[in-house]
């Protein structure tokens, strides 16, 4: 079966073509052939100048991540024929949110810088804790975050990174949980404080692209959620992200619903809320200003309050068990 591959190319050394362009290649594909194998075939039979990264061909090294028909994939574990049959096309582009260096190769330096930022190694505890054994249960909490092969698919899909290049982004955040969640780590609180800064973990927009497109099921969003609740439990609350969550938890406990006016006020604080007044008035013209007082409660709100108490009790019991 012959399939047309449309590949987004770029060569910075070619003065005539200093802009990315698409080039089409007709490739004879066979049952079971992967996208990476097809690219290698193009390399061998049609165009030795086509540049792309690859190494293990077994979804272990993480080198061959690219965008296939708009979404980031490991090309070594994606078969051509099913993908083509589903989408009716075969468009290959470099990872997004990174600078294209040549053809399908991107500059991963910013990716590594972000990983370095979260100090990707254990900080020892003080002398009293010279040895700390790790139980199977302990390992389970960080197991998923350890599956990362640094392919960059999550950062390529991350919508917050698309807009804010300073955002720490999912790969580094999943890596951060690997150490924050480790029972041997000595500097948990300091790590969580750093992660709570601007462009840090609270800037995640919860678009769930990272979890959807991670080829190794690292589920970065889940790791981000665990970082966030750990930070809040550690009392790191003086930032808009944590305040927002606290306001939400408080609103649900009080009235069972999201009290938008109270949440805005608590998240932004007094001064920034005053800045919102002109906008609030404009909303009010259209009847869109949420009720700031006497928010109606749901029926049986006492059940919700009791559930809050019981969940907290379960949490404390678990912590106790862990310490024992």
């Amino acid at each position: 079966m012959k399939i047309k591959f449309n590949i987004r190319r770029f060569n910075p050394d070619d003065s005539k073509l200093n802009e990315p362009y698409f080039q089409a290649y007709d490739v004879e594909v066979t049952e079971g052939m992967t996208v990476l194998e097809a690219l290698l075939k193009i390399n061998e039979e049609q165009d030795p100048t086509l540049a792309f990264r690859k190494s293990c061909r077994s979804a272990i090294c993480g080198s061959c991540a690219m965008k296939v028909n708009g979404f980031s994939k490991l090309t070594c574990s994606l078969q051509v024929i099913p993908e083509y049959k589903k989408k009716g096309r075969m468009v290959i582009e470099p990872l997004a949110n990174h600078k294209q260096v040549k053809d399908l190769v991107v500059d991963l330096n910013p990716f590594w810088k972000k990983i370095e930022k979260v100090t990707p190694y254990l900080t020892p505890m003080d002398k009293e804790h010279e040895e700390r054994s790790v139980s199977e249960e302990d390992e389970k909490t960080i197991d998923q975050s350890q599956r990362c092969i640094m392919c960059g698919c999550c950062n390529s899909e991350c919508n917050a990174l698309e807009i804010d290049s300073k955002f720490i982004a999912p790969a580094a955040l999943a890596k951060a949980w690997r150490f924050v969640g480790d029972v041997r780590e000595g500097d948990k609180k300091k790590r969580l404080e750093r992660l709570s800064e601007e462009h840090g973990m609270w800037d995640c927009v919860r678009c769930i692209h990272c979890t959807q497109y991670c080829p190794k099921d690292v589920a970065p969003l889940k790791q981000i959620e665990m970082l966030r609740s750990s930070a809040m439990k550690a009392g790191i609350l003086d930032n808009p992200g944590a305040k927002h969550v606290e306001a939400m938890a408080d609103s649900v406990r009080r009235v069972g619903r999201l009290d938008e006016a109270a949440m805005t006020f608590k998240t932004l604080g007094f001064l920034r809320s005053i800045g919102m007044i002109p906008f609030g008035l404009k909303m009010e013209l259209h009847g869109k200003m949420p009720l700031p007082i006497l928010f109606p409660k749901i029926e049986k709100i006492e059940e919700v309050k009791k559930i809050y108490e019981e969940a907290a009790k379960q949490g404390t019991e678990q912590e106790k068990k862990k310490e024992e």
Binding site: M232, V245, V252, R257, I307, Y308, A311
Partner: peptide
């Protein structure tokens, strides 16, 4: 009439078990 807010994702950041229980209700 008894249904509460689902937590809009924010309750997940607050406490996972609480988020599950509020939704189960």
């Amino acid at each position: 009439p008894k249904a509460s807010c689902c937590g809009a994702g924010l309750l997940t950041d607050y406490d996972y078990q609480l988020y599950i229980a509020i939704n189960a209700r």
